[in-house]
Nucleic acid binder design. Structure first.
Lengths: 212, 212
DNA sequence: GATTTGTTTAATAGCTCTATTAATAACGAT
DNA sequence: ATCGTTATTAATAGAGCTATTAAACAAATC
C-alpha cells in the first residue's frame, strides 16, 4: 500500500480530534467547549472522542501542556556572542513578539486556564517548566545585565524585572487584540499594521528605559 | 419599624445574590458558574435568582458592565495644574496600579469574557465606554504630550502608545499574580512586597523610556 | 382580621453534557 | 475467505443546568 499517499489523503481521526479540540479549547476555554461540539466539528461520533482520550480533562491537559511549552520556548534568550547587548535584546524582544503574532489567542487562553485552576494541574505544569527552563534563563540574563551595569552602559535593573517588562508589553498587545479589532473596526490589514508599529514602539520603550 | 436596624441586620436577598454572583463570575467565569451555585452560596432557592434577574445572562451583564466601568474609571487622567508633567504621570500610573491592587482578579476576568464574546454584548459595552470616555481622555493627553515634546522634555510618542504601555505593565502584574503566588510559593506578605517593588519599577521604566 | 402584594420555595419540564456499553464496520494479516 | 484487531456508531444511563409554574409564606394595607 502507498503509505505516503494514504497519509496525505486520510488524516487519522485521532489527530483530527486533537486539532479540532485544540482550536475549540483555545477559542472558548475548557468549560464552554463540549465533547459533542468537538466530535461534530471533527466529523465523527461523540463516543470516539472518549474512545481515544477517555475523558475531556485528559484531552484538555494534553493540549494545554504543549501550548504552555510552546509559549515559554518562544522566549529562549538569544546569547549570540557576535552581537552587542542591545542587538541581542532587540532580537529577543522581536522574536518573542513574532511568536505571539503567530498564535494570537494563546496568551489569554493560558492565563485564563491558570485562573480556572480547579481539578487540573495547570500550575504544576508551569512550575515544572519554570524549574527546568526559566530560572536557568534568568540566571544567565542576570550575569549579562550585571556586566552591562558595571560598565555603566545601562541602569540598575534585575533580570526578572526586565523579562516581566518585555512579556507584559508584548503579551498585552494580543490580550487587547479583540478590543482594538472591534473598537477601531479596522480591517485585517489595518490591524496587522498597528501591531507592527506597536512592536517598534515596544522595542524603543525598553531600550530607552534601560539607559543609565 | 426600625428601618436603620432592619437594613443592617437583613440585607435584601436581591443584593446578596448580586454580590455572590459577582464573586463567582469573577472567580470562575460565565460558563463555569451556575445559577444553582449562586443560589446555594447566597442561601436561597435557585428559582429566586431567576425571579430577580430572569436569566443568567441578564444577571451577568449587569455585573460585567459595572466592572468594566470601574476598570476604566480608575484610569481617569489626573490633570492637576499645580503638578509637573512628570509628577502627574507618576500619580496616574500609581493610581491605576492601586485600583488594580484592590481588585486583582478583575483584569483576567474582563479580558476573558471579552474573548468568549458569543451572544453577549461585552464588546458593545466597551465600545460605548470608549466613545464616552477614553477617546476624550486620549485627546487631552495628546495635547499635553505635544507640548512636552515641543519643549524637548520628552521623546516623540503618541498618547495611545503611552497609555498602552502603562496599562500593559500594570495589568500584567495581576494577570501573572497566580503564577507568582504559586511558583515562588511566598506568603501573602511576600507577594504584597513584590507587588509594591514592581510598582516602583514600572514607574521608573516609563519615566526613563520617555526621556528625549 | 381579611385582602392584596411581594418574597420564597418545591417541583418539574426540557436540555445538554459526559461517559459507558454493546453492536457494527473496516481493515490487515493469515 | 476468514479471523482478529482496530475504528466507529447508536443508544442510553445518569447527572447537572436553566427556566417556568404553582403553591406557600410573609408583610403591608385596608
Amino acid at each position: 500500500m502507498k503509505k505516503g499517499q494514504e497519509s496525505s489523503k486520510k488524516v487519522s481521526m485521532e489527530i483530527t480530534i486533537l486539532k479540532v479540540a485544540e482550536e475549540l479549547f483555545v477559542e472558548k476555554g475548557y468549560s464552554a467547549t463540549s465533547t459533542v461540539e468537538i466530535a461534530s466539528k471533527a466529523g465523527c461520533n461523540q463516543a470516539l472522542v472518549h474512545y481515544y482520550f477517555r475523558t475531556k480533562a485528559n484531552l484538555f491537559n494534553k493540549i494545554l501542556e504543549s501550548k504552555i511549552s510552546f509559549m515559554v520556548s518562544a522566549f529562549d534568550y538569544i546569547d549570540n556572542k557576535e552581537l552587542s547587548f542591545t542587538e541581542n535584546l532587540t532580537k529577543t524582544i522581536e522574536m518573542h513578539f513574532d511568536a505571539l503574532t503567530k498564535d494570537k489567542k494563546l496568551p489569554i487562553f493560558v492565563l485564563n486556564e491558570i485562573k480556572n485552576n480547579d481539578n487540573n494541574n495547570v500550575l504544576d505544569i508551569i512550575r515544572e517548566i519554570f524549574r527546568n527552563k526559566i530560572s536557568f534563563l534568568l540566571d544567565k540574563l542576570d550575569a549579562i545585565l550585571q556586566e552591562e551595569i558595571k560598565a555603566k552602559r545601562i541602569r540598575e535593573i534585575s533580570a526578572l524585572d526586565l523579562v516581566l517588562t518585555i512579556v507584559s508589553l508584548n503579551i498585552f498587545v494580543f490580550l487587547a487584540y479583540p478590543i482594538v479589532d472591534y473598537v477601531l473596526s479596522v480591517n485585517e490589514k489595518g490591524v496587522e499594521l498597528i501591531i507592527q508599529q506597536r512592536k517598534k514602539e515596544i522595542v524603543s520603550t525598553i531600550l530607552n528605559s534601560l539607559r543609565p
